[in-house]
């Protein structure tokens, strides 16, 4: 979670939902194994103390998907159904699949129950 750059030295841009969004809470707690308020403490310190750059907060899951699609080297999370609707059906049902859609390569990691 502390990694700032990809292997090619390009900066990782992270998009997240607001702190109180249920998807953010669930993803933070269940996947990152960290409580949302802990992330907030770390990110607030980065943002308002000059130490670094915190993730970019977007207002909705739709906006998050669009932001990741438009930003090379970015990362985010999304609900399966919403992602399927917004991106492409072929992308939504596979694990660790790379898709070259003509607009670039989107890498999807499916996280199952």
């Amino acid at each position: 979670m502390r990694q700032l750059h990809w292997a090619d030295d390009k900066t990782i841009t992270v998009f997240v939902l607001p702190n109180q969004h249920e998807l953010h809470k669930h993803f933070s707690k269940e996947r990152l194994q960290i409580f949302p308020y802990q992330l907030n403490r770390i990110w607030h310190k980065l943002t308002y103390s000059g130490l670094g750059v915190a993730p970019v907060v977007v207002n909705s899951p739709e906006a998050l998907i669009q932001a990741v699609l438009k930003t090379p080297g970015s990362i985010g999370y999304a609900d399966e159904k919403l992602l399927a609707n917004l991106v492409s059906n072929t992308m939504s049902n596979s694990n660790n699949k790379e898709k070259n859609s003509g607009k670039g390569v989107v890498h999807v990691v499916t996280i199952k129950d």
């Binding site: 990694q3 090379p72 790379e98 990691v109 129950d113």
Partner: peptide, 26 residues
């Protein structure tokens, strides 16, 4: 590109119907 993908896997495995997805190259 593969190494970049592996980095993402550190964010977690299993549980919840959500995706982690990244746009790696345009």
């Amino acid at each position: 590109m593969l190494s970049q993908s592996k980095t993402n896997m550190k964010w977690g495995t299993g549980v919840f119907k959500s995706f982690v997805f990244t746009l790696l190259l345009m």
